[in-house]
Every structure is written in structure tokens, then in C-alpha cells.
């Protein structure tokens, strides 16, 4: 099976007020294409650091990260930007849409930074907006949309460049339970279509909807469990988390 992402012995440390903080202390992880992974852990466990590395926002201190065929652990800043523009789809907790752009323009942004938006691309943006159910709001600005609608725009945006994987950082953190359900169903259907999703969350009832839970603790992976085939509930996941503590 082809790997969407492959992380090997990644260490990330940085200086903070003269002290060396070791955020990741040797993490290895393989994410095959089509997987749906939840990265869980308490704050300070290193899950955000891992997400930043996977999202090519940062480079590891040592170790390698492969996205597809390319080792991204040592490339320069411009190349990282290109990879982000062409192969990674971000979904953030606070949606992170650009306020002065319309829905359609927001979806286009990654294509814009690839340096081309053709009529065909624009058609694709329209289709994506339709897919997330916002075809009537193409000309609206983010402030005119509800939280759930904004997150749908963000999801459409993350798909526009046909990424290796969607990187979702607490995508339901700011949403009420009904909207959370909608978004999770949307992600579920994307995964069913074969999209790889890596999601950081600390909510058990969100984590239990994925195929696989990777738990981080003190910069190390402490468990990596597949949920497929099992009937896992939020309570089970919560129990798992407690057990690790």
C-alpha cells in the first residue's frame, strides 16, 4: 500500500528561554493512503508539533519525513511553501478563512499560490463548494457565514489542490454538537471517497469516529490502535486515554 506520509525517528527540539525543549523525542509513524487517523494526547504531548511537521510548516531537528516520494525534512522554505500549496490540505479549529475574500476566492487561495487559476480550476472550486453544500453562498464573505459553513469552506479549500492528506487541527473545536456531527459526516464521506485524513483532537467522541487512534505522550507515541472492525464508543476512547494517564 502506498504511504501518504511516512515519519521516521523524528526529533524536534527548540530553545525556549535558554532551555532546550524536546517536543518530539523520536516519533515514527506511517500513514497509508486512505487512512483516517486521530492524533490524540494532552496539551504538551507534542501533537501540535507533529501536525506542524506533517503540514510542512516546520522542519524536524533530526529524522526524516516523507510525503509521497519526497523527503521534506531538509528542503528550503520556498520548497516547503510549494509543497503546502500543492499537496497539503489544512483545516483549522478557527476556520482561518481570509476575511476580505469571498467563499469562492477563499477556496482558490492554494491554487493562487501555485501560480495559476484557470477557468477549469474555477469550475472545480465551484464543484467543491457545491459538494460541501455552499453553492448558494459563493459570493459571501466569511463574516456572513455561520461557524459550520465557514468550516465547510475550509474543507473545500483543503481539497482544492488534491492533497496527499487533509490535516485537520481540532476541526470541531469551535462548533456545537449538531454542527460537529455535520462536519464529521462530511469528513467521513471524504474518507469513504479515498481521501486520507489526519486529525488532531482531544475529544473522545470525535476520536472514536476515525479508523485509527495514535496517542502521544511527552513527545513519544504511546499507543497506536486500529479501530476498524471494532465497535468503539466515545466512552471506550475516553477510557483508553485515562488508562494512559
Amino acid at each position: 500500500m502506498k504511504l501518504a506520509a511516512c515519519v521516521r525517528n523524528v526529533v524536534k527540539q527548540y530553545e525556549l528561554d535558554g532551555e532546550t525543549v524536546r517536543a518530539l523525542r523520536g516519533v515514527s509513524l506511517e500513514v497509508p493512503e486512505g487512512d483516517y487517523v486521530a492524533i490524540m494526547g494532552t496539551s504538551g504531548s507534542g501533537k501540535s508539533t507533529l501536525l506542524n511537521l506533517l503540514g510542512c510548516l516546520d522542519r524536524p531537528s533530526s529524522g526524516t519525513i516523507f510525503l509521497g516520494e519526497e523527503d521534506v525534512s531538509k528542503v528550503n522554505d520556498d520548497r516547503l511553501s510549494e509543497i503546502r500549496a500543492s499537496r497539503i490540505g489544512f483545516v483549522f479549529q478557527s476556520y482561518n478563512l481570509i476575511q476580505q475574500l469571498t467563499v469562492l476566492e477563499n477556496i482558490e487561495v492554494p491554487l493562487f499560490y501555485q501560480g495559476r487559476v484557470t477557468a477549469k480550476d474555477r469550475e472545480r472550486c465551484r464543484e467543491l463548494a457545491m459538494m460541501v453544500g455552499l453553492e448558494k453562498r459563493l459570493g459571501h464573505r466569511p463574516t456572513q457565514l455561520s461557524g459550520g459553513q465557514q468550516q465547510r469552506v475550509a474543507i473545500a479549500r483543503s481539497l482544492v489542490n488534491d492533497p496527499f492528506f487533509i490535516l485537520a487541527d481540532e476541526p470541531t473545536g469551535n462548533l456545537d454538537s449538531a454542527t460537529t456531527e455535520e462536519i464529521l459526516q462530511l469528513l467521513q464521506s471524504l474518507n469513504n471517497q479515498g481521501k486520507t485524513i489526519i486529525m488532531v483532537t482531544h475529544e473522545p467522541d470525535v476520536g472514536c469516529r476515525t479508523k485509527r487512534i495514535v496517542r502521544l505522550r511527552d513527545g513519544l507515541i504511546c499507543s497506536d490502535e486500529r479501530l476498524t472492525g471494532k465497535n468503539v464508543t466515545a466512552a471506550d476512547v475516553a477510557a483508553m486515554l485515562m488508562q494512559v494517564e
Binding site: 482561518n96 481570509i98 487561495v109 499560490y113
Partner: peptide, 15 residues
């Protein structure tokens, strides 16, 4: 924030 978003979505420094 906007700068961060743009960078995350693939904007290079020169962009």
C-alpha cells in the same frame, strides 16, 4: 493571522 493562513496555504516569503 492572515499572513499565517496565507503561508500555511502555500504563500512563499516573496508572495
Amino acid at each position: 493571522r492572515e499572513i499565517g493562513i496565507r503561508r500555511a496555504l502555500g504563500a512563499k516569503r516573496r508572495d
